[in-house]
Amino acid sequence: MPPRCIDNLFLRFIQLVSLVSIVSLLFIIFFLVKESYLIVQEKPILTVFTDPAWHPLDGQFLLLPMMVGSLLIMLGAMLIALPIGLLTAILCRYYAPRWFATIIQRLMEVFAGIPAVVYGFWGVMVIVPAIAAWQAPGTSLLAGILVLTFIVTPGVTIISYHNLSQVNQTLLHSAIALGLSRYNIIRHIIFPEVKHGLITATTLQSGRAIGETLAVLMVCGNVVQLPGSVFEPIRTLTSNIALEMAYAMDTHRSALFLSGLLLLLIVLVLAFIAESMQKPKAESQ
């Protein structure tokens, strides 16, 4: 066979192989939609906001407390992790001695790769008892927020640091040459440069935070309720799926798939926001 034919065949072949990713994604969406169809058929979709409670066996499908739980826990964790991560990155980049910065960087890389379940387990062993000693029962919104903070902080630090190191060096040199103070350089030169990147990174990490399942499930108490304080237990959308999936049937099962679909939509919207926040990249090639 002449080489040109082989080249063409190969191209067709890898085009076909590349379809696998697209097909997988379509399958995922298709199955979520298909499985959640049952409940949408039986009840109006707004039922997840209006039903009196979450009693799936009695046909009551109030998902609202879980949505609130997911959002609260995500917002709480991001509110703590973002300033800490950003400040740590600033420290490593501009204030700390080299060796200290390297230690923190390596540490964050390691911790970013650690399974979330490890943080969850540690939360059960250390964080929950600590909170319980202060305010019973311990398994609570606060515990969830703290564990989730542990999970997202390494990522936030790494991405912030990465953004900071991409700031144009000539810009910095000219700022230094102008005699600007360190604070002013960071505040007025560097920060505007990295703002977009930081927003993108934060949004992406939020997506990861809201999708986190087992670590949160382990420490949150999983009571379906709108929490009155941070010390009360809550249940997230993800924990709800993990807890009930194993025995759910019919409309119950369908309701769970609907919450999965909802979760996917939230994450996709976040990803979309992240993408549109990104500064237009200079396209190569």
């Binding site: 590349s18 990713s21 697209i22 399958f27 995922i28 199955f31 997506g207 799926i241 999936m245 798939f257």
Partner: peptide, 25 residues
């Protein structure tokens, strides 16, 4: 571009949702 978009989306799918899909399919 379509492929890249699909990959980004796939990367964003929460693992519990991936689990549900794996279970159902």
């Amino acid at each position: 571009r379509l492929l890249r978009y699909a990959l980004n989306t796939l990367a964003a799918v929460p693992s519990i949702v991936m689990g549900m899909f794996g279970f159902a399919f």
